[in-house]
Design a binder for these strands. Structure first.
Lengths: 194, 194
DNA sequence: ACCTGAACACCGTTCAAGT
DNA sequence: ACCTGAACACCGTTCAAGT
């Protein structure tokens, strides 16, 4: 029983039974051990979920510098969102707490490098990276709760006199995600050109 | 005992005792009533917190169309963030579930109008508005948990060979928020000009 | 019919008691 | 010294029992 084995079992459990299965008690029951046994390998629940989240990002690819800074960022962040959504047990945690373990740091390094390649100064790299991560986190949270939130947004749209009319806002959709990401990448290009 | 009175009392309680005071049991204790009494006015906890969140946005101002679309959006969203941070009990809920009550709809209408004035087509207005709301939500969540997350980000920065070096990323700061908002507004301007 | 509060089905984590 | 599981201090919500 190692930290990695616990995290892998928890990830599989979450894939099977969803996010409400990710309690210390249910993970322990799945492992066939006492809940307290987990605390010998992780200081608390958040630390365990951080490890599970980082595991979920293992197969996200960084295309590297050859693909150009903007497609590189788009590929990484689209990959993070897709990977999180492939693992329903941990997606909400990825959204609430961007993983900064081994894989998170690897992908973060790719984003930093791409932003530097775009021409941003060091402070801009840090700010832009955090803005990108913030946006992905929120878009992911919306995708996780999609359906629930649709109705509320729909009402707001309807309350706007005349404006979008028949436009159906699909909160958390792939299209919605891509649009916002493009806005940020456009904005970064403007910032870098100054 | 009306829904509005319950929401106002809960907001005041949260201002005083923080977010962990926002449980049905503690709100009821503060009101001097049985926890179940609240359920006669709200179907569940989320509905109550939605009402509290909307109350917290009551004094956020929409400068209206005369100020130009970009400053108008910046003023509204900066105001939403500031208002949420002024109410520590409910800020996390605003971040997790953008309020779409009376005040949320009023401010949402301002954003929609501003985006239409910028020249976006109806579908673009809806997408851009959701991207803006997503960004504010995530930036707000980071501000709420500021301090906790700083250390992790700092480590990531340090792990990037050579890059930012002495740049200290302050997660959730006003400056960080403003930078990301500017990226989005820049991106919207690019999109509208197409 | 209305309303209360006991009870249900959980939590994360502490800590004392056992080995 | 190590490890377990009972216990603590909570949750949101249901529901039966009282008025």
């Amino acid at each position: 029983m190692t930290p990695a084995a616990i995290a892998a079992a928890a990830l599989a459990l979450g894939d099977r039974d969803g996010r409400q299965a990710m309690s210390m008690r249910r993970i322990a029951a799945d492992l066939g051990c006492d809940p307290m046994a987990i605390y010998r390998h992780f200081p608390n629940r958040d630390a365990l979920l951080d490890a599970v989240a980082d595991l979920a990002l293992a197969d996200v690819d960084d295309p590297g510098p050859d693909s150009g800074w903007s497609p590189r960022i788009a590929t990484i962040l689209t990959g993070v969102r897709a990977a999180a959504l492939r693992h329903p047990g941990i997606a909400a945690h990825v959204a609430a707490r961007p993983p900064l373990g081994t894989n998170g740091a690897r992908l973060g390094a790719g984003i930093y490098a791409a932003l530097a390649a775009a021409g941003l100064p060091p402070a801009g790299v840090v700010f832009a990276a955090q803005a990108l991560v913030a946006y992905v986190a929120a878009a992911l949270a919306m995708a996780v709760e999609a359906g629930t939130r649709d109705a509320r947004w729909h009402e707001v749209s309807r309350s706007m006199d005349g404006l979008p009319g028949e436009v159906m806002p699909v909160v958390g959709s792939d299209e919605q995600f891509g649009y916002g990401l493009r806005l940020l990448l456009n904005g970064i290009a403007v910032e870098a050109a100054r």
